[in-house]
């Protein structure tokens, strides 16, 4: 199939970017979206041009490193699918595809489609952990956890940290990402002990990183590759409110 591409090119964080047009004439429908970009890069190398920089690594939807806006949607037209798991059979012969980086004040562009998501690491550093040192853990079965609780904690813990939620939000809010971690740990007895400190510190850090506020449009949950539920945000807000009221 023939595909027409409009891709965001930007030399560095400080440089001004622009869309550049490219045409591919022999796209195989079985190709993944990133393999289509690989083939474009092969073409650029043969023309002695600098390749298009894009983030990717595992190419199986779990590392969270890939992610671009495709025709205005984070990770492209399919719900709950990472960019690397999108295949060209989703598109039609002759389609024009607009590709740009995830955009948010907290995610500066490094070059072309690569962005800096280290703000997410700093949110986790603020409290997204259980303070358990190596070597002091009690026998695993000494803390029974109901099947449903473990499954529900897993649902929150499945987040891959790709940033699609931020990119999809009109306020560039990191509420879904942050609440997923708060929620994962708060549901487990091991994590409950620190939950009040955690929610306060993590939400403070989220604000300090210039992520916007959550205004409940639920756009994030539509794009999330791991189908992280919007109810995590409700749980975070509740935890936050209780913590504030009792000012712990």
């Amino acid at each position: 199939m023939k595909i027409h591409l409009k891709i965001w090119r930007q030399d560095s964080t400080e440089a001004k970017g622009k869309f550049v047009d490219y045409d591919l004439s022999e796209v195989d429908a079985h190709m993944s979206f990133l393999e289509m970009l690989d083939s474009l890069n092969e073409l650029l190398i043969s023309r002695n041009e600098r390749v298009i920089e894009f983030d990717h690594d595992c190419r199986e939807g779990i590392c969270g490193q890939c992610g671009v806006m495709i025709n205005g949607r984070a990770h492209g037209p399919l719900d709950h699918t990472t960019t690397c798991q999108l295949h060209m059979r989703t598109f039609q012969d002759g389609d024009t595809i607009l590709i740009e980086p995830f955009r948010a004040a907290a995610f500066p562009v490094l070059r072309d489609l690569k962005i800096d998501r280290s703000a997410f690491d700093r949110i986790i550093q603020a409290g997204g952990f259980i303070s358990a040192n190596t070597g002091q853990a009690p026998e695993a079965n000494s803390i029974p956890i109901a099947h449903e609780t473990a499954e529900s904690a897993f649902d929150s813990a499945a987040c891959i940290g790709c940033g699609a939620c931020v990119a999809s939000c009109k306020n560039a809010s990191a509420a879904l990402f942050t609440s997923a971690k708060i929620s994962h740990l708060a549901q487990l007895p091991q994590g409950k002990i620190e939950h009040r400190v955690r929610v306060r510190k993590m939400t403070l850090q989220m604000d300090a990183e210039k992520f916007g506020a959550c205004s409940d449009t639920e756009a994030c949950a539509v794009e999330c590759p791991q189908q992280i539920s919007i109810s995590n945000i409700a749980r975070m807000n509740r935890e936050y409110l209780v913590t504030s009221l009792f000012s712990i």
């Binding site: 956890i145 109901a146 609780t149 740990l185």
Partner: peptide, 22 residues
């Protein structure tokens, strides 16, 4: 043996039986 204990302490949500055990 210790690794499972360590991971559970860190909050790794391993699969559980209905009785709550791993």
């Amino acid at each position: 043996l210790n690794l499972i204990d360590q991971s559970v302490a860190q909050g790794v949500p391993f699969a559980r039986e209905y009785g709550g055990y791993l």
